[in-house]
Amino acid sequence: MELAHYRREYLQGGLRRKSLPDNPLALFETWMQQAVAAELGDPTAMVVGTVDDRGQPYQRIVLLKHVDEQGFIFYTNMGSRKASQLAQNPRISLLFPWHGLERQVHVTGQVERLSTLEVMKYFSSRPKDSQIGAWVSPQSSRISARGVLEGKFLEMKQKFANGEVPLPSFWGGFRVKFDSVEFWQGGANRLHDRFLYQREQDGWSVDRLAP
């Protein structure tokens, strides 16, 4: 098929300035609840963008695990490529692609590492096999074959068969302290609705952007 010829109309609804709350987190939480209720695949999945020391951007899908006024939280191997890049440059972007609702949310900000207590609390809530998986994978490192991972998983599963899985020293999390949030709602005739919240000293400014 000719990709240039593929298109569709966005007709599910609009977004108006008068309906926006003062705080972007209120709208984000409403949209997240609606994404979950619509049974979208992986509604908590977000594209995480970082930049390396050469200025090369990288993106990958990561699951959001918590959000509040303090920020958006996700967890990762601290030896991973994204964690290494964030250690050099804490600026980050998040994108929630809720295609089924013809919506996107784009977040920018900078990260701070979570405390060991915060990480431990979440790690202990994970299924045991997921805890073991965190021990097994040297995330972003080159490996010779999948069998290496599978063999290590079986080895670690036997090791922790009769006890709790300890928190790996190389596993942690980040809180994204957000300073802008953009909401995109698809519209007919490509007249999409876009609103950008930007943090100011005493609250948030809101601007409509051209689609």
Results as ranks from 00 to 15, higher is better:
Q59C: 13
K82W: 02
E164R: 09
R7F: 05
T76M: 03
A134M: 10
S169N: 10
H192W: 04
L15G: 05
V176L: 05
V148I: 14
G49F: 06
W135Y: 08
I73T: 03
V105F: 07
R8G: 05
V67I: 14
L27Y: 03
G203M: 08
P127K: 14
M78R: 00
E29M: 08
P57L: 11
F170Q: 09
V119I: 15
S140T: 12
W98S: 09
G173A: 04
V47T: 15
G133N: 12
K177D: 00
P211I: 07
L11C: 06
F174N: 07
Y58K: 10
D52Q: 11
P21H: 07
R199M: 15
E118Q: 06
K159T: 08
Y75T: 04
G186P: 00
V62R: 01
K82P: 13
W135V: 01
I143K: 05
P90W: 04
V105D: 02
G109D: 04
P90R: 03
R113W: 08
L15P: 01
Q85T: 11
V176Y: 00
P21Y: 06
L3H: 09
I61V: 12
R208E: 09
P57F: 13
V107C: 02
E164H: 09
V36Q: 11
Y6A: 15
L114H: 03
F153Q: 14
Q88E: 09
